[in-house]
Design a protein around this nucleic acid. Structure first.
Lengths: 193, 193
DNA sequence: TTCGTTTCTTAACTTAAGAGAACGATTATT
DNA sequence: AATAATCGTTCTCTTAAGTTAAGAAACGAA
């Protein structure tokens, strides 16, 4: 299980056995069942999550409706907003599938950054790249119609279509489940011609 | 001019005179006129930008139309995607106003991170916070109607309404200039009742 | 000043999204 | 097996966004 993580890290920096065992000794690997709740609105959590296997989602409760805004699958992670600004969380995080996830906290980071500054470089690089990626996704979202966004999803993250119920994808696309259903039918009609 | 930057940095870490002069000696401060182009589509730039005074914007050219996706004002910065992934830029960056901007590159970062690891911590923290903020903005965008997004802008970034021509704000809100004009009229009608 | 460009608004028309309700189909629970 | 909950689709109605076109107002440069 650790190896999944180390394989990922090795893409960015090389780790000595010392450094690997320091990570292992943090005891951060956890298993969760589908539907398990990692974070609830209002909570003052300090936990960061990184998905080794499975899928988790963030969602807001707005007027009694779940609004799913992001999915995190293999080798993707999130440090919730509430951890960084020390405010009650505005959203929920739950498991879309049975998942294996690393659960860490800022104290662990400080500890390991001090022992091995290399990890801070890793985190900086990852953050910078994630930020650029997020901006790019946001740009795509702004400059696309709902239909284009769905086609885009089909092309770039088609695994989500298999793994996630459609109505949860709808809010991810910024539309209602009904609109998504219609839009799919529309695309299907076009493809028949 | 340097002091604007150091005041900002002092919110996160404290700098010795040594460290400050190391920054100054990098010679990164630049002035630009309104309309000046910092980055063009297709370019392989390595420059990162941080706005000390003024305003810059990123925009795409899509079917002959400018699509503005982000604005950066005082104490906001961007490392363009193309710098990180070493690919030709997909977008333009230009000055909305006369601006004072720091222009840096990865080589400078490496140099200063090695001398003063403190700066890497600063960059990591800033990246993490920006990422969380960006996600939050994206979430708001997804869960709001164009009208709500405009009202939101009014409340949270009203300075942009004064500084930026409306049609450039429209694509930032993910709509056409005509829609923004209508939507404003609609809000104005409502407020009269 | 004049001319041209930029900026904003308005209108008519087309298209699609939101809201509400209803209906099977599938899945989960008892 | 029966019942309930979840999920996707479809329908109608309403509202608003996209498109195209036109024109007025503000701004800048020659």
């Amino acid at each position: 299980m650790e190896n999944i993580l180390f394989d990922f890290i090795s893409k960015y920096i090389s780790l000595s056995d010392d450094e690997k065992s320091a990570v292992v000794s943090l005891n951060i690997f956890r298993s969760f069942k589908k539907g398990a709740m990692l974070l609830k609105e209002g909570q003052l959590s300090v936990e960061g999550y990184f998905v080794l296997k499975g899928c988790i989602r963030t969602f807001y409760m707005i007027e009694g409706e779940e609004k799913t805004t992001e999915f995190y699958t293999e080798m993707e992670g999130i440090t919730p907003n509430c951890v960084l600004n020390k405010q009650p969380s505005e959203y929920y995080i739950s498991c879309v599938e049975d998942s294996i996830i690393t659960v860490s906290n800022p104290a662990m980071e400080v500890e390991i950054f001090e022992k091995f500054p290399k990890f801070e470089t890793l985190c900086r690089i990852l953050s910078e790249q994630l930020l650029a990626k997020k901006q790019s996704s946001f740009d795509d979202f702004k400059t696309s119609s709902p239909e284009q966004r769905y086609v885009n999803l089909l092309q770039n993250k088609s695994d989500l279509l298999q793994r996630v119920p459609q109505h949860k994808l709808a809010s991810y696309l910024g539309i209602t489940p009904q609109s998504l259903s219609r839009l799919r039918a529309r695309i299907f009609e076009k493809s028949k011609e």
